[in-house]
Design a protein around this nucleic acid. Structure first.
Lengths: 139, 139
DNA sequence: TCTTGCTCCTCTAGTCGCTAGAGATCGTAG
DNA sequence: CTACGATCTCTAGCGACTAGAGGAGCAAGA
């Protein structure tokens, strides 16, 4: 059951250069090679890469994923750490949503003008003058 | 009314290296220099940089900001373009919010376990198996 | 006058998570 | 044998900065 990198790519939906990149930074283990120096993958690689992809889709960064992989490899340890990583991530997501929502309100208000000329344009005006805006500085 | 770069930084809240970076990529004009080669700014720079900062805070990217600056410099032109940029940005923000909200739901569900061991950990489990998850692939 | 300490200068390289491209090699089908 | 596709390595680029090295300018105090 030896998969070439292209096959692995198709099965997991992860692009070939990305697979090589993951290997380079230690997210995927170096696979054995064929005589002609091609990478040969097996089922374990498919699983690992699926895990990584899924975690990326959920927005975890590669450092977090590294930790989660470590944890997944030790099923008998307590899972506090995994929960913690996930909760921290959740907090980040919620923070982003909150800030984006504030932005939406602001930008929405900007677009509610239909003046003819730049001179009186709400968009430009709001940007030029902090005073017109309720926006608070982000960290 | 000559401001050193540090002063400009304090007045606008934009960090010094960022100011130099903006100059380098043409977002800020090159200011005149003192005898000792220090940059000398005036009120126009303060305003321009304030505009940029504000737009960045609202999430506009530097290319959009370049266009907006162009527009702001021609008050007698129609402002359709500015409106368009703002509306496009608004659409992006709304898209991001929608996707983050989906993620939040997903990650929230992951964190609602309090098993003891990694073996049964919801977080790891969900990541390992696509099937456990309603998440759709992002573009 | 000298020194201390702050600001400023330029330049390069690093961040994150890839992505793109060049140029070479491998493997296979006709 | 040849053509073509898949793969190899290596380097550089994206956006929007940020960090650091190594040097020079400048003002105030001793």
């Amino acid at each position: 059951m030896n998969l070439a990198i292209g096959e692995l790519s198709k099965r997991t939906g992860v692009k070939i250069p990305t697979i090589r990149y993951y290997e380079q930074i230690g997210i995927l283990p170096e696979p054995p090679r064929s005589e002609g120096n091609r990478r040969l993958y097996d089922e374990t690689h498919v699983q690992r890469l699926g895990f990584v992809r899924h975690a990326r889709e959920l927005g975890f960064d590669l450092d977090a994923i590294r930790e989660l992989i470590e944890l997944a490899g030790h099923p008998s340890r307590p899972c506090e750490k995994a929960d913690e990583i996930a909760r921290a991530h959740l907090a980040k997501i919620e923070d982003k949503i909150a800030r984006l929502s504030a932005l939406r309100t602001e930008v929405e208000r900007m677009t509610q003008c239909s003046n003819e000329m730049v001179e009186n344009c709400r968009v430009i005006e709001v940007l030029a003058d902090h005073g017109n805006c309720v926006h608070e500085t982000r960290r």
